[in-house]
Simulated scan of single mutants.
Amino acid sequence: MTKTLILYYSTYGHIEAMAEAIAEGVRSVPGSEVVIKRVPELMPEDVAKQAGAKLDQSAPIATVEELPDYDAIIIGTPTRYGRMAAQMANFLDQTGGLWFQDALVGKVGSVFTSTASQHGGQETTLMSTIVNLMHFGMTIVGLPYTEKRLVKIDEVSGGTPYGASTIANGDGSRMPSEDELEIAKSQGRHVAEVAGQLARGRTQ
Rank of each mutant, 00 (worst) to 15 (best):
Q94R: 15
Q94P: 01
Q94D: 14
T95S: 15
T95L: 11
T95D: 11
T95W: 10
T95V: 12
G96S: 15
G96N: 15
G97V: 11
G97H: 12
G97K: 13
G97E: 09
G97F: 09
L98M: 13
L98P: 04
L98Q: 12
W99G: 05
W99A: 05
W99M: 07
W99E: 05
F100T: 13
Q101Y: 06
Q101T: 13
Q101V: 07
D102A: 15
D102H: 14
D102Q: 15
A103V: 07
A103S: 08
A103Y: 07
A103C: 03
L104P: 00
L104G: 06
L104Q: 06
L104V: 02
V105E: 14
V105R: 15
V105A: 14
V105W: 09
V105G: 09
G106R: 04
G106N: 07
G106A: 05
K107H: 12
K107P: 10
K107T: 10
V108G: 02
V108K: 05
G109M: 02
G109H: 03
G109Q: 01
G109V: 00
S110M: 04
S110K: 07
V111P: 00
V111A: 01
V111W: 00
F112H: 08
T113D: 02
T113Y: 00
T113H: 01
T113A: 07
S114T: 09
S114E: 00
T115A: 15
T115R: 11
A116S: 05
A116L: 07
A116C: 05
A116H: 06
S117V: 06
S117R: 09
S117L: 00
S117E: 03
Q118W: 10
Q118R: 14
Q118P: 04
H119E: 09
H119Q: 09
H119Y: 11
H119D: 07
G120P: 02
G120R: 06
G120A: 10
G120C: 08
G121H: 03
G121F: 08
G121K: 01
G121Q: 01
G121C: 01
Q122M: 14
Q122K: 11
Q122H: 14
Q122Y: 05
E123H: 00
T124H: 12
T124A: 14
T124G: 11
T125Y: 07
T125V: 03
T125E: 02
L126G: 05
L126H: 02
L126V: 02
L126S: 07
L126T: 01
M127P: 04
M127W: 03
M127D: 02
S128G: 05
S128A: 12
T129L: 15
T129Y: 05
T129Q: 08
T129A: 10
T129F: 08
T129V: 06
I130P: 04
I130A: 09
V131M: 08
V131E: 14
N132C: 13
N132E: 13
N132Q: 12
L133G: 05
M134L: 15
M134T: 13
M134W: 09
M134F: 08
M134V: 14
